[in-house]
Design a protein around this nucleic acid. Structure first.
Lengths: 196, 196
DNA sequence: ACCTGAACACCGTTCAAGT
DNA sequence: ACCTGAACACCGTTCAAGT
């Protein structure tokens, strides 16, 4: 590869719809949903904005495509990892650990939580949440709770998870230190996980 | 008042900065933060958009003014009501009841949670959250928890509160029925409130 | 099959001129 | 002290024309 190619993201001549969707997803991770704009993306990809409309009918359609991409990704990686953990307590802990250490998938999840304003974001986040809550419910049943209690506890635990993400976003200066975070997770587990 | 005046919001001739701020706040409650746009507001107020810039230097400044207005309002009404409830358990219950029945202040709070994307929204929501969490911490101390436990439990409870709001926004079709909601609140209280 | 370039609409912002 | 109206920048969208 020569020097001229180093300055731009390498691609083989022309773009595909997937290239645009991936660029949009990167943009969400970097600067949030609002930053997904046709003109800046076109600049970044080295084409004019007019060409965008050959691949997608609208900016909205691009957002939807990017979000579908993310949904598939998070289903495979993040959620797949958790499924491997048999003990329900360990699973909850693993979930919170993942949040704390900010994998890319969670960065995007946070960005989407901030942009719930947008109609395209709501259904995706809704589906992901529903899936996660079903999963937690099953975990709590395995841990010995009755059906109704398991459902309520799952809702409570998932609320705690979403709320925790939000608070971390909100109280940016008060971002928790590692030790404090560990202590909080302990407290949360002791409170939410049924004892053996 | 004659028929011509009925079609427009009544006002005495010219506008003040407060009129614009209130109109912006109404817009947030109705259609969210993104809907706060100079041109539509000007149309609604019956003036041209140019006049807006006599009152505010930018759209952002308007947003900030509207949010300050809301912060003062919510501090007086919502939070003032809770302060009147002496028992910490009743207080938590009162808080969740308020969320469930969607007072205007909570409608706006929800809208702001959805628009955490916006730099002007974050500090306001941050201050309000901090105040609420301090308040919860004090309640849990009164209810008999040690200092650290009270802090953690307050964070957990507030996360549950914020997360609950979020889930209600997300799972719109699955919006809880009254009985189910009451049962959930019972479960949450039994889990989060220390026993006597 | 994919891209350019010019055009238009919409909104934020500026400013000289009006009352 | 507050408003108008024209101007410009920026972004979404369309489309005829290019390769």
């Amino acid at each position: 590869m020569n020097e001229a190619e180093l300055s731009k993201p390498e691609r083989s001549g022309r773009l595909s719809a997937d290239d645009w969707a991936q660029a949009a997803l990167d943009m969400i991770a970097e600067q949030g949903v609002a930053a997904v704009a046709v003109e800046p993306l076109a600049r970044r990809l080295g084409v004019t904005k007019g060409s965008f409309y050959w691949h997608f009918p609208s900016r909205d359609a691009l957002l939807v495509a990017a979000l579908e991409r993310w949904e598939k990704l998070e289903l495979e990686t993040v959620w797949g990892q958790l499924e491997a953990v048999p003990d329900p307590r360990q699973r909850l802990r693993a979930l919170f650990e993942m949040v704390a250490h900010e994998f890319k998938s969670h960065v995007i999840y946070s960005e989407l939580l901030k942009a719930l304003d947008h109609p395209a974001v709501q259904p995706v986040i809704g589906r992901v949440s529903e899936r996660r809550m079903d999963y937690l419910t099953a975990s709590f049943r395995q841990a010995g709770l009755g059906r109704t209690d398991a459902q309520h506890r799952a809702r409570l635990a998932y609320s705690a998870y979403v709320g925790f993400l939000q608070l971390n976003l909100q109280l940016h200066q008060t971002r928790m230190q590692h030790d404090e975070f560990e202590a909080y997770v302990e407290h949360m587990m002791a409170t939410l996980i049924p004892s053996v």
